[in-house]
Design a protein around this nucleic acid. Structure first.
Lengths: 250, 250
DNA sequence: CAGTGGTCTAGACCACTGG
DNA sequence: CAGTGGTCTAGACCACTGG
């Protein structure tokens, strides 16, 4: 992470006289990770050792680790310990086929489920359909080197794309739309929020219950302005950096 | 928040036999907020009452509230109580002048500081300059209806834009670049991550220490491919939905 | 002065893993 | 079986606010 957030003079006068213990401990551990003393994959001291080292109770030590976990610097394995995390994975978004940008990683998409559904109010509004209209819905799990990074849930108007679910659903859906239906995406809108993972998403993404997520809600339109895709992509907030590119026609 | 994440049959079989108490309490309170029993601005019961109502210790009740806080559903005032939050504010990004999309809100930008700096390694790399080259740097706080939503820190190559800091820095900087220097942005790249607010950002954004943030790191290029702007925008994760639009020239 | 959330203690029991 | 993190208790003291 780079600067331009630090003012040259002010440097770091952090805050009040005494910062809370959990923030001081988090800062101390963060410093050891940032300067390379603790490499990715390395185990941090067990919580009970941190209690002794910093003379705090376990709840306080855990709270410090919770901050680092939210930052994506460490991850915890219930029975194994707390470990320094690998750097985040950069994912290109905006085009449906997100690709792993970092070299040497193997992307994969796994179909979780695919089925015919009937549009509820939200889906109907997003796809410009009547409530109850048939839609093709599917969910896919995106991985990089076997690590789950994103859970994508997508809906398409069934009338417009008959037989879509019989296609190969592990590759680029946009390619399917182009090849088999002659449709090409012309415009996309997206909304992005920070969320808390629900139980299902957390389980599939191999994350802690109530861990942080990034929700990317997308709609894709064809040249005629009709919405042809509605998607809700959930990313592991601690593991990804989303890469967005944009050209101006001004 | 809409569906398409719920499979039609599976409905909700949440998880194991007994979910942890803090998740059950969070779910119970969330339900009361979602169905309108608790309106935005309403105070939740004090933590000590929740302890009695749900028969848990205060740490557990607080943990439940912490989940709702991370979701942006509630906010806390140290000495006042816990309150249901207003809906998130939608902010359009990608064009530098973010605008408040929701009607009836008054956007405002406040200059925090502006000064000449010398590029450190990160800034030099981003702007394609030598390390130590002069840059114009400035920080602005974006508000909607007086509520701080984003802290933007921006750097420009000083040699290319002499006198930039003497301009009006509360409006669109891109307009300044166009009007006074004949430069028009042609392409932008951005990276977006979930982060934890540092002490300075938290204070300026009126957020809790270590609260969640969204970091948007942008680079803007002119038609010749030269980088003319490097920005780090930090948003309050609990208060904003970022709106992104995109056209395809394919 | 009463009430609020923020921090912190010093424990406890649990499930799960690996040796 | 020892060691790990996950959950939880039943308190404590604090700063700060509003009446």
């Amino acid at each position: 992470m780079s600067t331009v957030g630090t003012r040259s003079e002010t440097a770091a006068d952090a805050g009040p006289r005494t910062a809370p213990a959990y923030l001081r401990i988090a800062a101390a551990l963060r410093a050891r990770i940032d300067d390379g003393q603790l490499q990715p994959g390395t185990a941090l001291p067990p919580e009970r050792e941190l209690c002794i080292a910093y003379d705090v109770s376990r709840m306080t030590a855990r709270r410090a680790l919770g901050v680092l976990e939210a930052e994506g610097l460490v991850h915890r394995g219930s029975t194994r310990g707390t470990f320094v995390s690998e750097p985040r994975v950069k994912l290109r978004v905006g085009s449906f086929t997100e690709e792993i940008v970092r070299s040497g990683r193997r992307p994969a998409a796994e179909l979780v489920w695919a089925e015919e559904q009937w549009a509820d109010a939200a889906v109907a509004r997003a796809l410009d359909l009547e409530e109850g209209a048939p839609v093709h819905a599917l969910q896919r799990l995106r991985r990089s080197n076997a690590e789950p990074l994103a859970l994508e849930t997508t809906a398409y108007p069934a009338d417009r794309f008959p037989g879509l679910l019989d296609d190969d659903l592990t590759g680029s859906l946009w390619d399917r739309l182009r090849e088999h239906y002659g449709v090409r995406p012309a415009r996309a809108t997206a909304e992005l929020e920070s969320v808390v993972l629900d139980a299902d998403a957390a389980a599939r993404l191999d994350a802690r219950p109530a861990a942080g997520g990034l929700l990317f809600v997308r709609r894709t339109f064809d040249a005629g302005g009709a919405c042809i895709e509605y998607a809700r992509d959930i990313y592991r907030a601690d593991r990804v950096t989303l890469v967005i590119e944009r050209e101006f026609d001004t």
